[in-house]
Amino acid sequence: MKLKDFRTFFNKELSNLYPKTEIDAFFFRTIEHTLNLQLTDVFTKQDLLITDDNMTVLKSVIERLKKEEPIQYILGETEFYGYTFKVNSDVLIPRPETEELVSWVKETVEHKKTKLSILDIGTGSGCIAISIQKELPTTKVTAFDISEKALETAKKNAELNKVNVNFIHHDILSNTTINDKFDVIISNPPYVRELEKDEIKNNVLNNEPHLALFVDDNNPLLFYKRIADIALTNLNENGVLFFEINQYLGKETKQMLLDKGFKNVVLKSDLFGNHRMIKANF
């Protein structure tokens, strides 16, 4: 099959499930990943013949997309903050709003002349920890996660991006002892309430790890409270705490931090105008 004919086939097979703009995005990512073609090649090499072996792979991508599996899991990788990350069903797919959190951290600390020590709690794929280590190479970055499988993926991503991050298996809810001190603590913990499940798309709900997504409706700030307590004990003087947060609980999260004695608590919106990040000084 020629490339132009495959594009027609690809669109036809998925047209009942996804909008055209999303199908086009899937197509370009699939072609780039599988056939090592660039966007311009799709238009300049329309008569390119696709081998039978490649057609088998491409058709399997279509079948998995029909089951609403995320394209990132199908291809096994995604881009975050300009870097490539391996992803699978053991880790959340990194989101653009989390890139904004990384930028905020970078803008806040990059002027500091001392060598900083940074802790990322609930690292998942390692996207936050690794991106910060890439952007601020003089920092010492440590990352925790409760999932050993997630840590395996994070370690592979550190190797892929050629950085040294200290990954540690740690359950912050049951293990209260952390010996080190840090200048910055960052976390994007589980924050989606069960009552908000109806807002989650099927490709997320049916594929991404619920352990990293959901919290009990009756205690939605569970992880934030615990991490705030860790910060009170383990942040150095003038240290900074950063969270990605539930957009519906911005005021509650801010008040919780103020009640615990944090200063200069700043609630920040993402590019879509949603309360998505918070910063506090110790």
Rank of each mutant, 00 (worst) to 15 (best):
Y224S: 12
V109N: 02
I172V: 12
I130Q: 03
Y83F: 14
E99Y: 03
T98N: 04
I62P: 02
A212Q: 09
V42I: 14
S117G: 02
N206S: 15
F43K: 05
E79D: 09
V184N: 08
N207F: 15
D171H: 01
E135F: 00
P137K: 07
S147G: 01
T138H: 08
I186A: 09
Y224L: 15
N234W: 10
N234Q: 10
T44I: 08
H111L: 06
F182I: 10
N206G: 10
E252F: 01
V87D: 01
H33Y: 07
N281L: 10
T138L: 12
F27D: 02
Q133T: 03
I23F: 01
Q255I: 04
H275A: 15
I186C: 13
R226V: 12
V266C: 04
D229H: 09
Y248E: 13
N11C: 04
K66R: 11
D47W: 05
K86S: 14
L35Y: 08
H169N: 11
P137Y: 13
L241A: 09
E110R: 00
L258N: 15
D183Y: 05
I185F: 07
K155Y: 05
F214Q: 13
F28A: 15
I200R: 05
L271C: 07
F6Y: 14
I50L: 09
L205C: 12
L136D: 08
K156G: 03
T78Y: 02
T138K: 09
K162Y: 08
L271N: 11
G82P: 01
V57S: 05
F6C: 04
R7E: 13
L249Q: 14
L17S: 11
N188D: 12
S187T: 06
F85Y: 09
F26P: 02
L151C: 08
N16A: 14
S60E: 14
R7N: 06
V192M: 07
N166D: 14
L101C: 07
P209S: 14
T153K: 07
Y81G: 00
K67D: 10
L221W: 13
N164F: 09
K115D: 08
F243M: 10
M256F: 06
L119K: 08
K197R: 14
D229E: 15
I200P: 12
N202F: 06
I172M: 03
K106D: 05
K251N: 11
K225F: 03
V184H: 07
I132D: 05
K279Y: 00
Y73C: 02
K162Q: 09
F214G: 15
K149E: 12
V215C: 15
L160V: 00
L257K: 10
D52H: 02
L92Q: 07
I185S: 11
G126D: 06
V265R: 13
R29P: 00
K106S: 03
D53H: 12
T44H: 06
V61S: 09
V105Y: 03
P96M: 11
E77F: 05
A25V: 00
